[in-house]
Design a protein around this nucleic acid. Structure first.
Lengths: 214, 214, 214, 214
DNA sequence: CATGAATGAGTATTCATTCAT
DNA sequence: TATGAATGAATACTCATTCAT
């Protein structure tokens, strides 16, 4: 019977799990409000009351508003890297792999998880605020870029992509496609459904970078 | 008597001109600092002292910090529309016209004039702040989109662009290209010079949307 | 059966002793940290972790931070009174007895035990905080003063001290000598060692109050 | 007539005078409340409403609560040094000069001006808070000590004071006498009037350090 | 009893905005 | 008109205290 032993370990892990759960709830609330209102318009009180806890409790999990923000971005960045890693391991063609990443990024159930991270780099406020504390995130970003670079260069080598276009530019443009935010710019009048948006974007991008049939 | 000639009109107009000049100086200073530091990190005092006037004077021209910001964006938006209008009137091919707009947007001497406008829509802070006061900018944006739509549809009609891709998507993606900011995302290590960036972006985009040679 | 011997009393007393021991440990830790950092810079957490217990446990012994402080001061005050009482009982001359008290107060091994008490009265923060809860300490202080008064008046009666100087003033000045803190004022550059400081202070004070040889 | 010239200088100086007046009022209020309640128990709001101004206005004059405190202490320190300097210049005997300083320090109209400065060095909180920002005050203190040293050493040379007692110890003890605060320790029961206190203190101290008539 | 997570009152500080000069 | 001193609402953060486990 497993009840023979009553180890203290699970207890510790329980507290730890509760703690992480709490942190996760805070991050989630923070994400929702931050996306809606932005960093400066969101107070710690707002976040706390969204979670249904007291202001002080937020500080038990994150030493400062900024650190909360950074944790949020870092988590999403890691999510993103994980998606790339999973896809990178497959044996499909380069295009298929890049498409897969795009699809997972646009997948509504995933999308929310990455918005802040994508948002952060789009705001002067945020970027300058981040610049200093980037040390930890930079290596993760570098890793992501390395993986993408490998995929794209395979695609070039296999004749899928145009070798005259710099890999760097492809990466940048590809990453641009990843920000669903960009597609709200001037489409608040929801006349293009997301379901039709993605295939067309894919079409433009991959046709755009495909090897020209001279 | 000096009242022989109608002195009021010119006087008013002079004052008015001076007034506008003042407002322009403030907007210019605001633009510079806002781009550098972001909305919240920029105080009215910062802007005033950049212009060399007192804080209170800013309020003689703009009723609030937010209105200053909105005036700034509106001005840039109008700039942008003007560029589109100028180009739209030409008789070049659709692609040539769209390329011309891109080039003027990327042109360093013009670029600064549009960055805030482009930046604003990339920050949750800004967007939510704007949402309410959009009434005035929305018609301008609609006008721009109408002009672009016309060009693109000409391009489709003339067989330049792929008719299977929705015009809306093309517009959105095209507007995305316009934000130089996007190309800083992960290119802080200046390995892709801007001069080579633009032609490649153009290449990808226009090849991407070009009619397929079945 | 273990109930043969009356186990309750010793058990309670053991618990009580443990309880008091705990309280003593807390007071000791509090003293160390409070002296180093001051009342406001010391958190209950600091004290608890210095003792190696949890924050809540401190509250099982002292109803508030302030009460902890008061208990500390009261204990030290009692210490001080005890020193006076021990010395007062001796048969030496008045001057020898007052000197003995001074020496024991300055004795490094004792000194720490009284610093907080002396410190408290030197800080406006502390005094105002104390003012209300003085009721309990006041009688102890009165007792100390009575003892000192007796010694001094003996000294006067025996011709040791100048009868023209008020006993009250002598007491006040004498108590002033007791605060080693005072001698840090401007001697941070440690050029006067404590060992030479005390004899000279004694010399000045007792010569100062000695009967004048007309 | 002096009204012939309407110089702008006086206007500037008026503003400047108003500004200084305001700062003085703040310092005065701060002093009163700080002495009563101590640093931590005094909020900027308390000070502001004591002066009858808004919180923000305090910050127009002092960049932080701490700086306000430092300004206060520094001002009082300078007051003290000025007293010493004035007295030091006289040609009286050493004792007379030291007595003069004591009297001026105890003079009720002056006393309030120095209490904070004397208080600060009596609180662990304050001292540690000050330690860092002492750079500016240290030279002033050193100057004061140099002046006092000179007087005392003259006294020794002239046979007024006992040469066997270290000048440093005399200075320290003398400075101790200067803190009226010390004489409240245990004399809240106003049985010794200040008028009789001072002469007796003087008597003890100067008899204490006087050359012994072997 | 002991714990330490949760609380929320309290505070320093900032800055857009106003208005007397 | 221009100024900039004054204002006070807003907000991040701390920490004594409580209480469920």
């Amino acid at each position: 019977m497993p009840s023979l032993e009553k180890p203290t370990k699970p207890a510790v892990s329980l507290k730890e799990r509760q703690r992480e759960e709490r942190a996760r709830l805070i991050l989630e609330a923070a994400q929702t409000i931050l996306l809606e209102r932005g960093y400066h318009e969101t107070s710690i009180d707002d976040i706390a009351s969204q979670v249904g806890i007291a202001k002080g409790t937020v500080y038990l999990h994150f030493p400062s508003k900024e650190d909360l923000m950074i944790a949020l971005v870092e988590g999403q960045l890691q999510n993103f890297v994980q998606v790339i890693e999973e896809v990178a391991a497959s044996t499909c063609s380069a295009r298929e792999r890049l498409e897969a990443i795009l699809r997972r990024t646009y997948d509504p159930s995933e999308a929310r998880r990455m918005q802040i991270f994508l948002e952060v780099f789009g705001s002067a406020d945020m970027r300058s605020r981040f610049a200093e504390k980037h040390e930890r995130t930079q290596p993760i970003i570098d890793h992501a870029r390395t993986l993408l670079r490998a995929i794209i260069e395979q695609g070039k080598a296999q004749g899928e992509f145009d070798q005259h276009i710099s890999t760097k530019v492809m990466i940048v443009m590809y990453l641009n496609l990843l920000s669903p935010r960009n597609y709200h710019h001037l489409t608040t009048d929801q006349t293009v459904a997301f379901e039709e948006l993605l295939p067309q974007i894919i079409q433009i991008f991959f046709h755009g970078i495909s090897r020209k049939q001279a």
